[in-house]
Lab assay of single mutants.
Amino acid sequence: RQGFVPAAYVKKLDSGTGKELVLALYDYQEKSPREVTMKKGDILTLLNSTNKDWWKVEVN
């Protein structure tokens, strides 16, 4: 499932696989259909980080 999360809630990881991955630093509950819920410690695939406030991710 793809959607947006606050950029301040995730940290980029060095995956070494060519995929950009991020680590969820905090729990986040989606507040609109365009967002996704994540739990602290989740590893997500980063799809787009051009917006400084909201990053598009895919929940694996």
Score class of each variant (00 low, 15 high):
33 P>L: 08
37 T>I: 03
3 G>S: 02
10 V>F: 05
59 V>G: 07
39 K>N: 08
38 M>P: 00
38 M>T: 04
29 Q>Y: 15
11 K>N: 06
27 D>K: 02
51 N>E: 11
22 V>D: 00
6 P>G: 02
4 F>Q: 03
3 G>K: 03
10 V>Y: 00
23 L>V: 14
48 N>W: 06
47 L>V: 11
25 L>I: 10
54 W>T: 02
25 L>Q: 04
57 V>H: 00
39 K>L: 08
51 N>P: 05
21 L>Q: 11
22 V>H: 04
14 D>E: 13
53 D>S: 11
47 L>Q: 03
52 K>M: 11
38 M>G: 00
26 Y>W: 09
60 N>M: 15
58 E>F: 05
55 W>S: 02
4 F>M: 09
9 Y>T: 07
27 D>F: 04
10 V>N: 00
34 R>N: 14
51 N>K: 06
20 E>I: 14
13 L>C: 13
17 T>R: 12
55 W>K: 01
40 K>N: 04
51 N>D: 15
19 K>Y: 10
36 V>R: 02
6 P>V: 03
24 A>F: 02
12 K>Q: 08
38 M>I: 15
30 E>D: 05
41 G>E: 02
15 S>W: 14
31 K>H: 09
33 P>W: 10
10 V>A: 03
25 L>H: 03
8 A>M: 12
21 L>F: 11
15 S>L: 14
52 K>A: 12
35 E>P: 04
38 M>H: 00
40 K>Q: 12
31 K>A: 10
27 D>Q: 03
38 M>K: 00
19 K>W: 09
40 K>P: 03
41 G>K: 01
55 W>E: 01
45 T>H: 12
5 V>Q: 01
7 A>D: 02
39 K>V: 09
25 L>N: 03
30 E>Y: 04
24 A>V: 08
55 W>N: 01
23 L>Q: 13
43 I>W: 04
7 A>W: 01
2 Q>W: 08
49 S>H: 10
14 D>L: 11
42 D>Q: 13
41 G>L: 03
46 L>C: 05
40 K>C: 07
54 W>G: 00
9 Y>F: 13
17 T>G: 15
15 S>F: 12
32 S>P: 04
2 Q>M: 09
2 Q>E: 09
8 A>L: 11
13 L>T: 06
45 T>E: 10
26 Y>G: 06
29 Q>V: 15
19 K>L: 13
28 Y>R: 02
17 T>Y: 14
14 D>M: 11
5 V>P: 02
41 G>S: 03
18 G>V: 10
34 R>Y: 14
